[in-house]
Every structure is written in structure tokens, then in C-alpha cells.
């Protein structure tokens, strides 16, 4: 048995720490009206775990890894697709257009493979 190290670990930590500051800075001032949409939008952003699930399933071998990986892809897809669509629906209300028309045929990119 030999313990291996991750060569990139310091770079990852650097990115992590910087991202903490960016995350704090970026929402430092937000009206309470937007608390819910912002929460929902950031909920959608972490749905990008789908990328991770795809990588994991991609070279999964053996039933356990394949089953877990497939389940992970399914859950992550729900997160990213549902998250952006539900946020878009909330924000439809903020258009402030005088027309009551249900014009918004918004079709947010749903992250499904082309």
C-alpha cells in the first residue's frame, strides 16, 4: 500500500479560498424581495454537480459504481434542470411589464445534452 498525493491540492485550496470571498462579495447587498429567487438560483448553480456525476459514471466499472453513478446523474439532472426552470418562473413575475400577457415563453437552457 502506498499513499498517493494529489498534485493539484494547493491550487484547489487557493481556488476554494478565493471563491469563498467572491461568494460573499457577490451577494453582499440584496433586497429581501430577491432572497427567495437568489436562493433558488444558487440552488440551480450547485446542480453543476451533474458534470461530476457524468465524469464518475463515464469510467465506472462494476455494477456498484455504475448503479450509483447512474443514480447520481439522475439526481443531479433534477437539480440543475429543475433549479433553473423554477427560478425562471419566479423571476417571470419581476418583469414589471404593463402587459398581462403570458408572453414569457421562456425556454431556459435546460442542460440536457444536445
Amino acid at each position: 500500500m502506498i499513499a498517493f498525493a494529489q498534485p493539484g491540492i494547493i491550487a484547489f485550496l487557493t481556488i476554494f479560498v478565493l471563491a469563498v470571498f467572491v461568494g460573499n462579495e457577490v451577494i453582499s447587498k440584496v433586497p429581501s424581495v430577491l432572497h427567495t429567487p437568489l436562493m433558488s438560483g444558487s440552488n440551480a448553480v450547485h446542480g453543476i454537480i451533474l458534470v461530476g456525476t457524468m465524469v464518475v459514471l463515464g469510467d465506472a466499472h462494476g455494477p456498484a459504481q455504475v448503479i450509483l453513478g447512474t443514480l447520481a446523474v439522475l439526481l443531479a439532472t433534477l437539480n440543475v434542470v429543475g433549479g433553473f426552470v423554477v427560478t425562471d418562473r419566479m423571476l417571470e413575475m419581476f418583469k414589471g411589464k404593463p402587459k398581462p400577457a403570458k408572453a414569457a415563453k421562456a425556454d431556459p437552457a435546460d442542460g440536457s445534452p444536445a
Binding site: N24, I27, H35, H46
Partner: peptide, 14 residues
């Protein structure tokens, strides 16, 4: 790392 940390940090603040 970036997306997760952004949400983690901003989420605590929110």
C-alpha cells in the same frame, strides 16, 4: 470547486 464554494459561501450569508 468554484460553483460549489460560491453557493456555499453566499448561501451562508443569505
Amino acid at each position: 470547486i468554484i460553483a460549489g464554494t460560491l453557493v456555499g459561501a453566499s448561501g451562508i450569508l443569505l
